[in-house]
């Protein structure tokens, strides 16, 4: 007993101060929102577009755009760039209420902040948001970084956010994975078992656009093929900070 108390003392208080304080330092090699000064692109160069394993890059009216929902943040485009002007910035704040909001010019930087949920939703759920997580394919990394948010380092219970075991208790269906054919029924049943009002949050490139498995016959290719999605949080997997930031912004809980 004494020993566990002593260890408790030496382990200390470890919950991050974010969002009141600055976020914890990320690795200087962390791959956040991609950026390139596309005015320096050589004429007709498509090296990054061709290198992308999931076709997340494309040209729209002569402007390079990246679909952050499909992006694996894998740096294959960065490696392929002959001018070395493509970089992955430390920007972790990426989330959107609609799918189109994740398709952004490569030449723009900064946070992508989701619109807040409606006043009614925030009134009902703003101080107590119960989440049912369903893993529907994918690799388990998104699940791991969602799980992390319940640990003492992140403690999203501070904001009234909690993972619950039953869909009957849940306000949010948080989906990870590309929704495999074999999980489609379970996803639909889980959603049907939830009481109104209910929200769907797609976490990770698989749940948003199929991720590396996009186009495979065994997967549906994302949450929106099965359900209407209310919030998209990109990443492969999204950093726990991205998930927390996306949810808190949607609940209007971050004052800048």
């Amino acid at each position: 007993m004494l020993r566990s108390l002593l260890t408790r003392l030496t382990q200390g208080h470890r919950t991050i101060g974010y969002p009141r304080q600055a976020p914890p330092a990320l690795s200087d090699r962390y791959q956040g929102r991609p950026y390139a000064d596309t005015s320096r692109c050589p004429n007709g160069c498509q090296a990054c577009v061709q290198a992308c394993p999931v076709n997340a890059l494309h040209t729209n009216n002569g402007q390079l755009e990246v679909d952050l929902g499909a992006c694996l943040f894998c740096t294959d485009c960065q490696t392929a760039c002959p001018e070395k002007i493509l970089e992955f910035t430390p920007e972790f704040r990426m989330a959107s209420r609609d799918r189109k909001g994740l398709v952004v010019p490569l030449a723009e930087k900064g946070a992508i902040t989701p619109e807040a949920f409606s006043r009614e939703i925030r009134r009902l759920l703003g101080r107590s948001l119960k989440i049912r997580v369903v893993s529907a394919g994918g690799c388990g990394a998104c699940e791991a970084d969602v799980n992390v948010l319940s640990t003492i380092g992140w403690d999203w219970g501070r904001f009234g956010i909690q993972v619950v075991a039953s869909p009957r208790h849940a306000d949010v269906l948080l989906l990870t994975g590309p929704v495999t054919n074999n999980m489609e029924l379970a996803v639909q049943k889980t959603y049907a078992a939830m009481a109104e009002p209910k929200l769907v949050v797609a976490v990770g490139s698989c749940a948003i656009a199929g991720g590396p498995f996009a186009g495979h016959q065994s997967v549906r290719g994302g949450a929106e093929q099965v359900l209407k999605v209310d919030l998209y949080i990109p990443g492969c997997p999204p950093h726990p900070l991205s998930i927390l930031e996306g949810l808190l912004q949607s609940l209007n809980k971050i004052k800048h």
Partner: peptide, 27 residues
């Protein structure tokens, strides 16, 4: 329930995706 058709997707490779299959077959 997690079946994503990975082994079949490798056939015809290596290509731009195959390394990512290895990275995400168990994350």
């Amino acid at each position: 329930y997690q079946h994503r058709g990975l082994e079949a997707a490798w056939e015809g490779g290596p290509n731009a995706r195959t390394r990512h299959y290895a990275e995400t077959l168990a994350g």
